[in-house]
Write a protein that binds this DNA or RNA. Structure first.
Lengths: 245, 245
DNA sequence: TAGCTCAAATTGGTGTGCCAATTTGATCGT
DNA sequence: ACGATCAAATTGGCACACCAATTTGAGCTA
């Protein structure tokens, strides 16, 4: 396969770097040198360099040369933009992070925040039939909690976690399955419990309520993955770890 | 801004994809079309396509065209906010999130993880004089904890928080101030306490040790901001909120 | 001798042309 | 009318040539 030639060259260059023991900060051979060494045009080497640059392995300086930023990983560690993450891994991360965020929010939440959350849950309850609407309310509720911390980074983190859901094509499949069920009612009850704890300014209670909520979601997901076609089973178990609290 | 032209074009193409609502699986305009549209050569567009390909946003098929694999995330979110975020807000977010991550890690940490952390702390202790070295060890220790959860999203989140530090010009100022002091020794003791709790697989202990560590860092930061020139005072209080636990 | 200047060499940046794989659709045979 | 075939159009793959920024060092000057 002559296709994706720049990838082959890029991997060869990585190997070359490893073998020759180039130090971080050191200078790589020039594009022309590699071009001759591998018997390809400089264009291809340049493309390979771009690949290494995107992977944050090298830095390219016009008129000077290219320099090693960090040693290329042998196996697998490059993951600048979190990609193929399974729903379980995502849910576990949300469980760990959002329960902490809920505990934080409980200590600084305002009456206004509480009111907004209440309205959102009312909406979620009223629109249980509409997947679109109740799902939007679901997301909104979680983000309102993060917003209540008044820390933009926590809100940002939470937003990223939720955005990641839409990016995964797998989530669409799960979505379709959950759609047929009535777990949404259970989850709404979870949400109400979280809100109740927030109302009482009970940090530990909010943490545990949020933890339990996402535990329930995980269990649901697990049940779905077992009872139906096992097309995406390998997908689920990227890692489990971490029990409650 | 003639340098790194392919990056500009690549970002423009991402924006184009978002704006025009191209569906996943859909076909992108050809390299030639983009070349004309942006007024650059096809070579540059090709490089931009390679960038998107490395980021796993598109798939390039010879003789056919390029196809969207998933919607590009709006990268402006993190980066645009990164500038406006004060050290206190960042530290608070780290306190909330990293303490939860530490609790999670305590439940699944392996002997090997513990060993790596121990070595990192030994290094941190040995290099207390070198700002560079001990700071790198500091970062490494925190990331090792996140890595121990075996959840790539938690690691990713933690990494983003630390990367944000470098992005803030303010942190350099703080860095220079802390450099003169010997808080590093105190923080190393904090780290050792966290590691001790992880060794005992004590989730609650790890959570509180990490919380206390970052509380100490916040206090240090606060002290520095009061005793010295008040140039960056307005900078600090973006939000405080959230007490311990 | 130390330092400055500037031109040549080095190195990455970009544009153009042609090649190869794929797709498309018109044409021919049944 | 249907389908197989194949040639032309489309599209990405690659090489080469030239441009621009940077570095280097020889030679000049103080």
């Amino acid at each position: 396969m002559a296709e994706r030639l720049y990838r082959d060259i890029g991997e060869h260059i990585k190997e070359e770097i490893r073998v020759q023991g180039l130090k971080v900060g050191g200078k790589l051979p020039t594009e022309r040198v590699y071009a001759e060494q591998f018997g390809v045009s400089r264009t291809v080497v340049r493309e390979a360099f771009i690949m290494l640059e995107i992977e944050e392995l090298i830095e390219v300086r016009k008129g000077s040369g290219s320099y090693l930023i960090k040693l290329p990983a042998d196996g697998r560690l490059v993951r600048s933009h979190a990609e193929d993450i399974g729903p379980f891994e995502l849910l576990q991360a949300r469980q760990v992070l959002e329960s902490a965020i809920a505990a934080c929010a409980a200590q600084v939440v305002t009456k206004h925040d509480i009111q907004l959350m209440q309205e959102t849950l009312d909406l979620e309850g009223a629109e249980l039939e509409s997947i679109e609407k109740s799902d939007a309310a679901d997301r909104e509720f979680h983000l309102l909690i993060a917003r209540a911390t008044q820390n933009s980074l926590l809100l940002e983190t939470c937003t990223q976690l939720w955005d990641m859901r839409e990016r995964s094509p797998m989530w669409k499949t799960l979505h379709a399955r959950i759609q047929d069920r009535s777990y949404r009612g259970d989850w709404l009850a979870d949400h109400r419990e979280v809100l109740a704890q927030l109302r009482r300014r009970n940090a530990e209670g909010a943490r545990q309520a949020m933890w339990q909520h996402l535990e329930n979601v995980k269990v649901t997901l697990f049940a779905l993955s077992n009872t139906e076609d096992p097309d995406f089973d390998g997908f689920l178990f990227t890692s489990l770890g971490a029990g409650p609290l």
